[in-house]
Write a protein that binds this DNA or RNA. Structure first.
Lengths: 354, 354
DNA sequence: GTGAAAGCGCTAACAC
DNA sequence: GTGTTAGCGCTTTCAC
């Protein structure tokens, strides 16, 4: 009836009619549900293929699942996150689930002063509103309470935050250990004035569980263990390239300059390298620089950044596995996975000058 | 009634009851539709706030809109794409729309040999199935026919592909001009053997409209215009870091080495820099390198890559604007926007040796 | 200006 | 095993 582009999309009813069965049968076949004879399954599948039927997730979602899992990233610019996403996608690929990404954009609008946490909360809500069957939160800025609230409503896996909860699963890197790896490496090279660039944490409540905070703690502890407690020097900016740039500017202006800078993330280290270059200093001859995440950029020829590898793909795959399990059985006990980081030494670290 | 966590979510019915109005009234208020008295609007809004009501997109989508726009990215690792996403998000921020990202992951699975184009097509379908009100396709690999098919079903804006269509809007960078900018810059510096690294294009049908193809054409034309037609040298790998690495390996193995390499994208240039460093050559003393996209990494201190800026945020914002317009009026004539690139000269290009 | 009621396309009880 | 039917939470005629 409908001419031109408006050809109504084929629905389960069309398939049922074409296959001469009930819509229930079609629905069951779609979901591999129990109670359909092979013959009927055959006919339904033929009809589906013939008509090119694809179920609408929205309609499915009204009663059952949408077969969609949402991933909330704090920032797409950080090259570490794609690793995690790849891990998730890879694990989900052979299932019927589809991954949808949401991210807080970092554009600073004049009037709007929504904090990162607010943007993130809004994003989480909007994903729930869109019927995600489950969600993965990567290093969420929200407080434990808000995360638990979300987890009460939808299967959830948190990546990066060091917080245990009965309501959601968690996958974290042993950030304290990773930080110690860097400090020990630098100390072994002979460095004493090893500074660290952290992310400023406005909310003290959640502070302790953020990955950056744990790295900073690991840094402090390792420095102390090395007998360098008096040399501890932390600058707090942000886990962005700009944060690294500004942090390094501060550190390089110290009366007694550090001989090594441990940036909390590779992306931060990128900014550090820029600032160091601008200051006319050579890496690693004048100053050593190390990062965290071992992103693909760290390996770049002109960079060769020493960095901590935290196996992002593995973390993503673990998270996806836990999420799928939890979607299947929401009351299953919660799991807490810790992965062990390793140090990848490249060309930005060497013995201190002199 | 429902105890514990299972507290049923508040629906439009709850709001209506609480405000002592009909569900129709609530629905109208939600959509700022015509035909509600200020008084009623007031009461409804109060009830919404009091109950913390949030409409479910799935349910809305069954009759009206989902207020969701989907963005399909070929690859999240390319640091240029976040620029576009920021542009889109920024434009959409003050509307009720929410942006959802989908991306083809680049994990190569042993058994699975789905091509990029297939993965992308599946992704587009799944976004349509999930009721996106509109979609932005960034440099889609699909053929014009498939894109048009998709555009017939859902408002669509294509970024990057140089193809006009009555069914969708298009936003492209003048890639030929950008390539000419690079070639002319290098030629002015005195280079003659200027090589180019392109993306291998398996499908000849769509080849001409892909951004990389247009850049390559621009390179050839500019070389010819400079009287360097005999020096044209194109290696086709891929728009990835690895593609740049492999391409540069090939070029550096030439009997007569090029004195400059124009990489089709910054991410490709990264790989080129790695290969050049491995070969023990200095940039720009021994060889010049230029990229395209002017991503944040190009500006990095230790990189300082000369690159073509194509204003990703602007492109994203334009695309979002066109999409919103098309969602509002699907039959509106299609628009084709071309943005003009500029060259950003940094430290990887200089006069050739000798 | 307002509300009753009919769907949207699917899933899940529940009959048969 | 199979089909009938009642919703899921919204939007949208269409009466009033």
């Amino acid at each position: 009836m409908d001419p031109g582009t408006g050809t109504r999309r084929v629905t389960i009813v069309d398939v049922a009619a074409h296959a001469q069965v009930s819509t229930t049968a079609v629905s069951k076949v779609m979901r591999n549900a129990y109670g359909v004879s092979p013959a009927m399954r055959e006919r339904v599948n033929a009809a589906i293929a013939e008509l090119g039927y694809r179920p609408r997730a929205a309609a499915r979602g009204m009663r059952g699942r949408t077969y969609t899992i949402g991933v909330v990233l704090p920032d797409i610019r950080n090259p570490f996150f794609p690793e995690i996403v790849d891990g998730i996608s890879g694990h989900v690929r052979d299932t019927e689930y589809q991954v949808m990404l949401g991210t807080g954009s970092r554009i600073s609008l004049p009037g709007t002063s929504a904090s990162d946490a607010e943007v993130e909360l809004r994003l989480i809500d909007s994903m729930v509103d869109r019927g995600m069957d489950g969600m993965v939160l990567v290093a969420p800025a929200a407080g434990q309470k808000r995360v638990d609230e979300a987890a009460a409503g939808v299967p959830l896996v948190v990546i990066g935050r060091h917080m245990r909860s009965a309501l959601h699963d968690t996958v974290v890197d042993d950030d304290a250990r990773g930080a110690a790896l860097v400090v020990n490496h630098l100390a072994d090279l002979g460095h004493r004035r090893i500074a660290h660039i952290d992310q400023r944490e406005p909310d003290h409540g959640r502070a302790a569980t953020m990955p950056n905070a744990v790295r900073t703690r690991g840094y402090r502890d390792a420095m102390t263990a090395q007998g360098l407690a008096g040399q501890i020097d932390v600058v707090s900016t942000g886990y962005t390239e700009e944060g690294g740039y500004l942090g390094a500017k501060q550190l390089l202006a110290r009366e007694v300059r550090p001989t090594a800078i441990f940036a909390g993330a590779d992306i931060v280290a990128m900014g550090v390298l820029t600032a160091v270059a601008e200051a006319g200093l050579r890496v690693p001859e004048d100053i050593s620089v190390a990062g965290y995440d071992n992103t693909s950029f760290a390996a770049l020829g002109p960079i060769g950044l020493t960095s901590v590898d935290q196996a992002g793909q593995q973390i993503g795959a673990d998270a996806a596995r836990l999420l799928l399990e939890r979607i299947a059985r929401r009351d299953r006990p919660s799991t807490f996975i810790t992965t062990s980081p390793t140090l990848v030494v490249r060309r930005t670290t060497a013995a201190p000058p002199g």
